[in-house]
C-alpha cells in the first residue's frame, strides 16, 4: 500500500447534487479497488487559470488515500471517461506536511475547516516586497530606462552582475520581438 493524492477538477457549471454524485461515484470505485481513504477535501470552486473545454471555473476535490499501486491505473481510466472531470492528477503523497488549504466540507455537514495558508506564506511576500522597494530606489537613481520593466525579476537585473545584465537585455529583446509579431 502506498499513499496517494489525487486532485481532480469537476466542471464548474454542474450543480451541487451532480458534483456530489461524481465525488461519491469515484469514492466508491476507489474503495472497490481496495483504497482506504484518509481524507477527502473539497477545495471548492476556483477560477481556472486558463479555459478548459470553454469552462472558466472548476470545482476542486482532493482525495487522500492509500492503495495498491495496481489500483491507480483502472481508477484513472475511469476518470478519463467522465467528461465532467476536466482534469485529474495522481501523485504520491509525501506525508511530511499537513495540507494548508481550505476544506469546504461535504454539503450539509457544516464543516468548514479553514486552515488557510496565508500565515505560512507571509514571509515570502514580505521578503519580495522589501526587495522590490530597494530596487526601485536604486534603479531609479542609476538608470532611467526602466519604463517597461515592471516585474520583480527584471528590476533585479539592474543591480546585478554584468552577466545577468546581458541576459536581461536578451529577454527584453525577446519580448519586443514577440510584440512585433
Amino acid at each position: 500500500m502506498k499513499k496517494y493524492d489525487t486532485t481532480f477538477v469537476i466542471d464548474g457549471t454542474l450543480d451541487q447534487n451532480q458534483r456530489e454524485e461524481i465525488i461519491e461515484k469515484y469514492e466508491k470505485s476507489l474503495k472497490k479497488l481496495g483504497g482506504e481513504f484518509d481524507r477527502i477535501i473539497r477545495w471548492g470552486m476556483r477560477k481556472l487559470a486558463y479555459e478548459i473545454k470553454k469552462r472558466t471555473h472548476g470545482y476542486y476535490v482532493i482525495f487522500y488515500y492509500s492503495a495498491e499501486p495496481s489500483a491507480i491505473k483502472p481508477f484513472e481510466a475511469e476518470m478519463k471517461l467522465n467528461e465532467n472531470i476536466l482534469r485529474f492528477m495522481t501523485i504520491l503523497f509525501d506525508g511530511k506536511h499537513p495540507e494548508n488549504i481550505r476544506d469546504e466540507g461535504a454539503p450539509g455537514s457544516e464543516k468548514i475547516v479553514t486552515v488557510d495558508s496565508t500565515e505560512d506564506i507571509q514571509p515570502f511576500e514580505d521578503d519580495s516586497l522589501e526587495i522590490d522597494d530597494d530596487i526601485d530606489m536604486e534603479s531609479v537613481d542609476d538608470e532611467s530606462d526602466s519604463d517597461e520593466t515592471e516585474s520583480l525579476n527584471e528590476d533585479e537585473i539592474d543591480d546585478d552582475d554584468e552577466e545577468s545584465e546581458l541576459s536581461g537585455d536578451d529577454e527584453t529583446e525577446d519580448i519586443q520581438d514577440k510584440e512585433d509579431k
Binding site: E99, I101, D120, D134, D142, D159, E165
Partner: peptide
C-alpha cells in the same frame, strides 16, 4: 555597478520544505 544583494534561497532560510503544488500563492 552596485553589487549590493547577496541573494539567498528562501526555502533554505525559512526551512520550508513544503513543495506541494496546491500552494498557489507561494508559487
Amino acid at each position: 555597478m552596485l553589487r549590493t544583494k547577496i541573494k539567498v534561497c528562501k526555502f533554505c532560510v525559512n526551512k520550508d520544505e513544503d513543495f506541494n503544488y496546491k500552494h498557489e500563492r507561494k508559487w
